[in-house]
Write a protein that binds this DNA or RNA. Structure first.
Length: 480
RNA sequence: GGCGGCAUAGCCAAGUGGCUAAGGCGACGGUCUGCAAAACCGUUAUUCCCGAGUUCAAAUCUCGGUGCCGCCUCCA
């Protein structure tokens, strides 16, 4: 058993060798909170959460850090437009981010550091870079000297000389080299600012992540994630400024996730080409959104598409249904095979064999660069085995005795992927209104009033529930 | 123009040197059902964008095409 991780920097899968055998650190670049979160912001959150949950299931203590960039030009722009302080804008969008993280069963991070709360750390890091001659003061700004760091470009595979053309210098910037990037941006009149040795100003975009990652995870840590659109320049610059300052490896594994596409093109704030997660959540069950987002390997792009989501809903319902079936037949039923004092589950039960096999394949999938798509796929084989046992009228005692254990395996593996949390209480909370209609329909069916029964079923379906007439009675489920 | 990635059935998606090319959706046939739904059983890629090469052996490696995506400016 060994975990292998694809590292963007080395461009290959490497064995996972944590800095600390018991504890691992993950830094996942969060969002700039000038706006509400869109689906793309949930892709990286889900991808990170899956990896985190898996590592935790392997016994690691995971220190998980996701930042908020709560000060930058866009936020200031937005605040000015609305005529409110910048922190009102960032505050409300951070809140929205967390609301929808919870909705998608994304575990809360260990830390959610914000740039504006880490000015001392940021300033100290910039000072360190100036002392080492990797940064210089120019006018009211401080820049990183890219030419002073020969390994620049190692993450994104770029050569400094190739980059020379095309780089733009904004008005007012006084860089020695067009490639140099801002560490500290001196404030213009009326802009929010913090005091520093170089005068009032605010941090550049990249420096906060280096400072905060090092503060919470140490100068060298295991995982650094974020969207693939951050590879260059953001992550490249993070490596440059961090490793130039410490002389040590910064993050050991760079695990950038593929982007969410909309009609074939990247979801993006600046292009106004995106779906807000709050709008999507009104139409699609949160469990299905999550299931869908992790049904593709995290490094591949994923198309956001209503047809795909509907299919995902059907597929996911299959898993949930098997789980429910298994748990229902398992609960409260004495296991005949165990009644005689037997302490071990019947090893020759087919469901149990399937559960063991699924467990093995699931683990192998996740060990191979956290392939949740593959792991999730294996769950369907176990679901089928559980349904098969529950289905057959002449279920053997051996199979029945093994069913609870097999079902527990399904639940445990699903939960490792962050599934099966029943976001809307779909199982328990059948509204009284719906339940009353179900009862009426049952009565009609007893009297063989089929037309009346069908009308009632149509009404119930219109309320978003599906019916399953079973031997023991009618089961109503929320449609996923 | 430079850098990186992707191309697998009707659709989505695993698989990156050798067992029958996972799984889901859809479709078709069957069981069950008052009819459905769900579930179960069966069928649905002699073949992995195209061409050449390496190898006893390639969807998987190499080279050359074609198409798509991302980055090179803020973006998860």
């Amino acid at each position: 058993m060994s975990i292998r991780v694809y590292d963007t920097r080395k461009r290959k899968k490497l064995p996972f060798e944590p800095v600390d055998p018991k504890r691992t650190g993950m830094y996942v670049c969060g969002m700039t909170v000038q706006d509400k979160p869109h689906v793309g912001h949930k892709r990286y959150a889900v991808a990170g959460d899956v990896i985190r949950r898996y590592l935790e299931s392997k016994g690691f203590e995971v220190v998980y850090v996701t930042n908020f960039t709560d000060i930058d030009d866009r936020i200031i722009e937005r605040a000015n437009k609305e005529g409110i302080p910048f922190d009102k804008v960032s505050e409300r969008n951070m809140k929205a981010f967390l609301t929808y993280s919870d909705l998608l069963n994304i575990k809360r991070a260990t830390h959610y550091p914000r740039a504006t709360e880490h000015l001392p750390e940021i300033i100290a890091l910039i000072q360190r870079l100036i002392e080492k001659k990797h940064a210089y003061v120019s006018g009211i700004d401080v820049y990183f000297d890219v030419r002073s760091y020969p390994k620049y470009g190692q993450l994104s595979g770029r050569k400094v000389d190739d980059l020379r053309q095309g780089v733009r210098i904004e008005v007012g910037e006084m860089k020695r080299d067009p490639l140099d990037f801002t560490l500290w941006k001196g404030a213009k009149p009326g802009e929010p600012s913090w005091p520093s040795p170089w005068g009032p100003g605010r941090p550049g975009w990249h420096i906060e992540c280096s400072a905060m990652a090092m503060k919470y995870l140490g100068e060298t840590f295991d995982f650094h994630g974020g969207g693939q659109d951050l590879v260059f320049p953001h992550h490249e610059n993070e490596i440059a400024q961090s490793e130039a300052a410490t002389g040590k490896t910064f993050a050991r594994y760079w695990i950038e996730n593929g982007l969410v596409l909309l009609r074939g093109a990247k979801m993006s704030k600046s292009e106004q080409h995106f779906f807000l997660i709050e709008d999507v959540a009104k139409k699609v069950e949160p469990e299905v959104i999550r299931f869908y987002l992790q049904s593709t390997q995290y490094r591949s792009p994923i198309e956001w598409n209503e047809d795909r989501l509907r299919e995902a809903g059907i597929a996911y319902a299959r898993l949930k249904s098997a789980l429910e079936t298994g748990e229902k037949s398992g609960d409260g039923t004495p296991d005949p095979a165990l009644a005689g004092g037997a302490t071990e589950l019947p090893a020759n039960a087919k469901v149990l064999a399937e559960a063991r096999k699924t467990e093995k394949l699931f683990q192998e999938s996740m060990e191979d660069d956290f392939n949740s798509a593959k792991a999730q796929g294996h769950l369907f084989d176990l679901a089928k085995a559980i349904n098969r046992v529950s289905e057959s009228g002449r279920m053997s005692e051996v199979e029945r005795a093994a069913l609870p254990e097999a079902t527990r395996t399904l639940r445990r593996l699903g939960e490792t992927l962050g599934l099966f949390w029943d976001a809307n209480g779909a199982e328990e909370a059948i509204p009284d209104e719906v339940q009353a209609l179900v009862t009426q329909r049952d009565e009609a069916r007893l009297q063989k009033q089929w037309q009346r029964a069908d009308e009632l079923r149509a009404e119930i379906q219109a309320l978003g529930f599906v019916l399953e007439d079973q031997k023991g009675g009618t089961r109503a489920r929320r449609k996923l």
